[in-house]
Design a protein around this nucleic acid. Sequence first.
DNA 1: CTGAAAGCGCTAACAA
DNA 2: TTGTTAGCGCTTTCAG
Lengths: 350, 350
Amino acid sequence: MRSKTQTDGAARIGIHKVASHARVSIATVSRTINHVPTVNPVLAARVWKSVAELNYVPNTQARALVSGKSKLFGLIISEITNPFFPELIQEFERAAVARGYEILIGSTNYEPEKMELCARRMLERNVDGVAIMTFGFEESLLDRFAGEDIPVVFIDVTPRHPRSSNLQVDYRAGIYEGVQHLAVLGHRKIGFISGPLRLGSAETRKLAFLDCLRCAGIKPQSAWLVEGDHTLDGGRDAMQRILQLPEWPTAIMCSNDMTAIGVQHALFEADLKVPADFSLIGFDDIHLAEYTIPPLTTVRMSCKDLAQGAVTSLLANMESTQSRFETRSKINTRLIVRQTTGLPKMSSAI
Amino acid sequence: MRSKTQTDGAARIGIHKVASHARVSIATVSRTINHVPTVNPVLAARVWKSVAELNYVPNTQARALVSGKSKLFGLIISEITNPFFPELIQEFERAAVARGYEILIGSTNYEPEKMELCARRMLERNVDGVAIMTFGFEESLLDRFAGEDIPVVFIDVTPRHPRSSNLQVDYRAGIYEGVQHLAVLGHRKIGFISGPLRLGSAETRKLAFLDCLRCAGIKPQSAWLVEGDHTLDGGRDAMQRILQLPEWPTAIMCSNDMTAIGVQHALFEADLKVPADFSLIGFDDIHLAEYTIPPLTTVRMSCKDLAQGAVTSLLANMESTQSRFETRSKINTRLIVRQTTGLPKMSSAI
DNA sequence: CTGAAAGCGCTAACAA
DNA sequence: TTGTTAGCGCTTTCAG
């Protein structure tokens, strides 16, 4: 059923057709389109002409098969629905496509099995490298990639592992600025809504917060340390739990911006005002943070740095011939003050 | 240093190794893993055992090369940064992965050249089908895909084209509900902030709005029809332009939710209240719409329907042996009333 | 500098 | 039912 009709428009033009059309060998065509410098310019010109006329597009699959490189990067994220990740993806895509790579995206939705599935999908497609941007994961996963000698880059975690790079986020700097900012305004009762604590980085952020609190001479109160899940709903729920407490903090820091937006919503529903009743600080500085009402004070972590760092590391790692290759680079954070922070509300218990 | 040590884990296991390990031919391995029913169960068992022990993962590239099917879908969107699209992607991914397909995502960012680039990327990677979810595009693009006989699915536009499917969104229904809702509240002065009008669907939405206005017996006022660009910034700017006008509308409908959130921000900056000073209706019903302050009344367009419809069409289209294959399916819209709509402010000019 | 030829890992005839 | 074999479209030695 397939080969009979020649009229079918079908079957892509292959290197063979180009070769005969340009009256050269397929090897010459291959060299030309791969910009091998030793090709006779006259022949090259003929080839390019044929390529254009026949509308030839090289078949990446075949290329991948013979070269062993798929020109594909895997990008594993937590949840595409959290705006931080699309911003990350955008930068990652930009960097990757500019160098001729495509991206395979996998979302774990914070479920370990999904992570496993993602790893398998990436392996099957033969990715040349994987960026695990989930802010925490089972280290056993790395073995799968290590087994195939596939470069991996990830955040925070520092497993001892060949062909892996590490992007170290300096949470402390930004969070410290946040705590200081609050302290200067007069806040002493500061709560923290964390991410899912089984995520390493969520834990790290919380620890950084606690540490900063101590540095600022403020005693953390465990009731005000509540676990969220980095989603809008999670932030709202967490705040509602805090509102149930006998004593309220005067300020809340959140492990990410989505949580903070959820908090704003909970407060809105409870008819409480930001920053009059509660000061609020987010984390990430997604574009939306500027657009919340009121605009969100937050700690910026550049997803552009993250994305570019990831692509760069992957590339460097691939080029390196060392069987062991480990890097780490630092990602900075800093406070962006907008309008969700203000003087603490003077409660009955002065 | 790589091949000597067998322990190296290196170089992926191929079908060959599995075959010899299971003491069968590679053909039998191939048949087994492809679930060809005629394989002797005993041999099959041996094969599966070897597959597991050797941790064999089939090489998709090779498969694609010989079978001619890449098991890859292209998904072209406008802007990954607009939360509507991640929600779409999530559903699309779910549907595609469940059937063994991977997704290649390309963003056009509303730039025609980017669209061209996306098409090329998809072609190079040999996608089995493309979903163009940009709500408008140059039809010339379709020719590229048609030339390769690649199924395409898209929104609204209905070009005459083989192997194409069409998802027809019923904008009118939801928009009409919105206009009616406003009319019932007493609004007669209703503005509309459209998307970029060179996008077909943005134009369609605007036309639908105008038509609904007429049906409700309201005369549209051209000064209140302003062009946005479907982004937060665009929405804010558009609203600021409206605030410059000598006479204000009492309600605003937006071509998408991001625009509406931008509008809320502009109003916040101008110290105007929603819905006291302006009623506001969005479009899309992204998850965030529930979390804006106050929560956004909006027209819901199910991105799940869109995504699933797209995948289903693509699949059906591929299976069809007809060289021409056209479908269209309908996507419904409906109003979700939340808290950004209320009675119109009684202006000086009663 | 160019061309012929050998595969990359797999599927699908075809033969046994 | 199983194994042998011929490619899929391309890159890459290796001769010329």
